[in-house]
């Protein structure tokens, strides 16, 4: 099921939380929803799941506007809210049964599906405990289990991996990736490597507006600009090396990194690469090239560039 968001706007008093937001998520796509605190991520998710009303604009799920559908669309969505609210006084199994019943699943299916979810989320040893007795990571797993219990076509996950241990994070990411092959997944997170590991597409919003939209690679390419190489060249006088490198056609700037005399940072002209030239130069001059690292713009940098102003 596709989600289509058209010109969505939401204001809280004088504050605009979401400002004329439009995007589309297709089936089989995992969308990473990024943004600094207060950017409007959770507000958007709350509107998609029908918790808060739409002020202006429209959200279409599977082609149907949620304003007209009232409650019908909710059963297609599995939602893990921010901070993962749960009933602490309920045992895990009862809680999952309660959630399944509320989603209108038929009785015969519920038991089977609960066993499946308990397996998938690794809750087998804890299933009879009360939720209040579980550790944070296990509670998170219960939250994920309740979101997926009715096998929804759309999953909306607000920071799904907070509180999980590294092994579990890897498992849950894999799970999300697998689910994303046939379902529509929107997940928000602050953990940038997570986006790279799980998402097909990234949407960065700031102050309620989209500031970037694309795959991790395209975003990187957009913001990267020129090629930057880190070099270590030995067996030569650093000053002569610097001078020779500067004379290469493809090189825009070159500077010595202070800490180590034979380390250089080289920036090529746009759309050009200096890798071959550097190598040939070293061969010609009998210098030893011991390190050549292309510096990629990190997602963190892209994020910072787009959201700090």
């Amino acid at each position: 099921m596709d989600i289509q968001i058209e010109k969505l706007t939401k204001t809280y008093g004088p504050q605009t939380a979401v400002n004329d937001l439009s995007f589309k998520v297709k089936t089989g796509e995992v969308l990473g929803f990024l943004g600094p605190n207060g950017a409007g991520k959770s507000t958007t998710m709350k509107m998609i799941t029908g918790y808060i009303g739409i002020e202006k604009g429209d959200i279409r799920i599977g082609g149907k506007s949620i304003c007209e559908e009232t409650n019908n669309f909710k059963k297609h969505i599995g939602y893990l809210p921010e901070n993962n609210p749960l009933y602490f006084d309920m045992p895990v199994i009862d809680y999952l049964e309660f959630c399944a019943a509320l989603q209108g699943m038929n009785k015969a299916m519920i038991g089977k599906r609960i066993r499946e979810m308990i397996g998938v989320c690794g809750l087998n040893r804890e299933k009879h405990k009360k939720i209040g007795e579980l550790s944070k990571g296990y509670r998170q797993r219960v939250g994920l289990a309740q979101a997926m219990i009715h096998d929804p076509e759309i999953l909306v996950l607000d920071e799904p991996t907070t509180g999980l241990d590294p092994n579990q994070i890897i498992e849950i990411r894999k799970l999300i990736r697998d689910l994303g092959k046939e379902k529509t997944v929107i997940l928000s997170t602050h953990i940038l490597p997570e986006v790279e590991a799980t998402c097909d597409r990234i949407l960065i919003i700031n102050k309620g507006k989209i500031v970037a939209d694309g795959t991790p690679e395209t975003l990187r390419k957009q913001s990267q600009g020129n090629e930057i190489l880190k070099l270590r060249i030995e067996d030569g006088d650093p000053n002569i090396i610097l001078k020779s490198l500067k004379e290469l056609n493809t090189v825009l700037t070159i500077e010595r990194i202070q800490a180590d005399q034979s380390m250089f940072e080289l920036q090529s002209h746009s759309e050009q690469t200096s890798v071959r030239e550097v190598f040939s130069l070293c061969v010609k001059k009998k210098w030893v090239l011991t390190e050549l690292t292309p510096l990629e713009t990190k997602l963190e940098d892209i994020f910072r560039n787009l959201t700090v102003n």
Partner: peptide, 10 residues
Amino acid sequence: GTLELLLTKS
């Protein structure tokens, strides 16, 4: 916050 949980189900 469980209100949000309930009201986003059917």
